[in-house]
Computed example of a mutant assay.
Amino acid sequence: MHLVPADRADRRTIDGHRVCDAIAAIGDAGRVRAWADRFALLADPKRLALLLALHRTGPLAVSDLAVATGMNDPAVSQALRLLRAAGVVAGEKEGRVVRYRVVDADVAGLLGHCAADG
């Protein structure tokens, strides 16, 4: 069965069956966009450092993350705000201290691969 969309059906292919397999592998455009957004979050070295620290150690407070990454507290807070808005991390308040942790299972899986290579 060919999955070539009608707007591309008139174009010549060399390996038509592979083109159909490639279209199936790409899948839903919304899912591709969601993964691209995740990768964009991970593309910033400072955000990636924060996520690697959280993935390896578990929940940490902003000030502890700042010391671990060499960032200042406001920069850590801003990065965590972005990661929280994207659903990648969540904060758990304990008194006046908020400790953050990675909650996105897909991102955690990617971080596991990154950490294993280091």
Results as ranks from 00 to 15, higher is better:
M1F: 03
L3M: 00
V4E: 13
P5K: 14
A6F: 07
A9D: 12
A9V: 10
D10S: 15
I14R: 08
H17V: 10
V19K: 05
C20A: 15
I23K: 05
A25M: 13
A25W: 10
A25F: 14
I26V: 14
I26P: 11
G27D: 15
A29S: 13
A29G: 13
R33M: 06
A36Y: 02
R38F: 01
R38I: 05
F39D: 01
L41S: 14
A43T: 03
L51I: 09
L52R: 15
T57L: 09
G58I: 12
V62N: 08
V62W: 01
S63T: 13
D64Y: 05
D64F: 14
A66M: 15
T69E: 12
T69I: 09
G70L: 00
M71R: 02
M71P: 00
D73L: 03
P74T: 11
V76M: 00
S77V: 01
S77Y: 11
Q78S: 12
Q78C: 11
R81I: 10
L82S: 08
R84I: 02
A85H: 13
G87I: 01
V88D: 02
V88H: 12
A90I: 09
G91Q: 03
G91P: 08
K93C: 09
R96A: 11
R96N: 05
Y100H: 15
Y100P: 15
Y100F: 15
Y100Q: 09
R101D: 06
V102N: 00
V102K: 04
V102T: 05
V102Q: 01
V103I: 15
V107E: 01
A108D: 06
A108F: 04
L110D: 01
L111M: 04
L111P: 01
G112T: 02
G112C: 06
C114W: 02
A115S: 08
D117N: 04
D117Q: 10
